[in-house]
Simulated assay, not measured.
Amino acid sequence: MKRLVRSANSRIITGVCGGIGQYFNIDPIIIRVLAAISLFISLGITLLIYLLMTVLVPSEGDFRS
């Protein structure tokens, strides 16, 4: 089963964008660029969502399959 997790390998800050990229099978750089653009357009909502995902989405190493 495919799960959304924060990436341990493709991590720059907390691994959220890397994890989203892995989940949707997209290059994490594209996710990071979209997040950076959204950060300036959304008036801080993107930052709030990023922080919430950092807290709520488990890290890749937290799962024992």
Rank of each mutant, 00 (worst) to 15 (best):
D27Q: 10
I13P: 14
L48W: 11
R11A: 09
L39Y: 10
S59Y: 07
V16K: 11
A35H: 14
R3G: 01
C17I: 03
D62E: 13
P28H: 00
A35T: 14
Y23R: 04
A36I: 15
T46Y: 02
R11K: 13
C17Q: 10
I20R: 06
F63Q: 10
L56S: 04
I13V: 15
V16T: 09
F24N: 12
L56R: 05
V33W: 04
R11G: 07
T46E: 01
F63L: 14
G21R: 09
N25V: 12
C17A: 11
G18N: 01
G21T: 03
Q22T: 15
P58L: 04
L47F: 11
I45S: 13
F40L: 08
G18V: 15
L4P: 01
I20F: 00
I41R: 12
V55H: 10
T54R: 08
L52C: 08
F63R: 11
C17V: 01
S42P: 06
R11D: 06
S10G: 05
R32F: 07
G61K: 11
Y50W: 06
G18S: 13
A8D: 07
I30T: 15
I31N: 01
I30A: 14
M53V: 05
G15Q: 04
L39I: 15
I30M: 14
V33T: 06
V55A: 10
D27Y: 12
L34W: 05
P28Q: 02
Y50C: 00
V57P: 07
L48S: 10
R11H: 10
A8G: 09
L43F: 09
I31R: 03
R11V: 06
I45Q: 10
T46G: 05
F63T: 13
R6V: 01
L56K: 07
D62G: 08
V57R: 04
S10F: 03
V33Q: 14
Y23N: 02
Y50V: 01
C17W: 11
R32L: 09
T54P: 14
T54N: 14
I12A: 07
T14N: 12
A35C: 13
S7K: 05
V16S: 07
V5A: 06
R64T: 05
I49Y: 08
S10D: 04
S65Q: 06
L56E: 08
S65I: 10
G44M: 02
L39N: 15
S38C: 14
M1T: 01
I26K: 13
A8R: 07
T14H: 12
L39T: 06
P58C: 04
G18L: 15
V5D: 03
S59W: 05
R11C: 12
L56P: 04
I49H: 10
Y50I: 00
R11P: 09
V55Y: 06
V5N: 02
Q22F: 15
I37W: 03
G21D: 04
I37N: 02
I20G: 00
S42R: 01
G44K: 02
S10C: 06
A36S: 11
N25R: 15
N25H: 13
I12H: 01
I20K: 03
R11E: 09
V55G: 03
I29T: 15
Y50M: 00
